[in-house]
């Protein structure tokens, strides 16, 4: 599989509710769903006491930042509709092989921190996805007379201010 789209778990209404709960009085004027590209990897991770399990990692193509994630919930094919993709800004972009290195480095560091030095290593990549599209909401809102642009994570509802 070379491409998949993660299911939007936080819809537009949820995103607005999350922001309103933090700042009562915040009025949302528009909410646009945009999809951000990641490289996706699934690994087999030896743990302690002979146990082996799967781990998922996503690497942001536009920053190189790698994350350990929950197993991906993929959007149904028939639910697919025209997506608003975030364009490549072309000043900070990494390629797939670099993303793979970042994912492996992250996994081994993370497992070592948890398992400590009794761990023997042996992480193995079992599959990869060239493009994993992650949904995010870009929201325009007003609060106390000021306008703000806010991103709300379409998977977990985290938010970050883009500008005012």
């Amino acid at each position: 599989m070379s491409e998949l789209v993660l299911r939007t778990l936080v819809d537009g209404q949820d995103a607005q509710r999350i922001l309103a709960a933090k700042a009562p009085g915040l009025a949302v004027t528009s909410a646009k769903l945009r999809h951000h590209p990641f490289a996706g990897f699934v690994f087999e991770v030896p743990q302690l006491a002979g146990r082996i399990a799967q781990a998922h990692a996503l690497v942001d193509y536009y920053s190189g930042k790698a994350f350990v994630t929950d197993p991906w919930q993929v959007q149904d094919a028939q639910a697919g509709q025209r997506m608003d993709l975030v364009a490549d800004p072309k000043w900070n972009t990494i390629d797939f092989d670099t993303a793979r290195e970042r994912a492996k480095a992250l996994l081994s560091t993370a497992v070592l921190r948890r398992a400590r030095l009794a761990w023997r290593g042996g992480i193995r990549e079992t599959s990869s996805v060239a493009k994993v599209w992650k949904p995010n909401w870009v929201i325009e809102a007003k609060l106390e007379g000021k306008s703000y642009r806010i991103m709300v994570d379409g998977l977990n509802g985290g938010y970050f201010f883009i500008g005012s």
Binding site: K22, K65, F161
Partner: peptide, 29 residues
């Protein structure tokens, strides 16, 4: 450098992990 201003009550819970996604999606349209 484009970090503020942010309403105080929303500052604490802001998710820095979204920083790069927010920059790319929000400013490069």
């Amino acid at each position: 450098a484009k970090i503020g201003p942010i309403p105080k009550k929303m500052l604490i819970d802001q998710d820095a992990l979204l920083a790069s996604q927010a920059e790319m999606a929000g400013r490069h349209e």
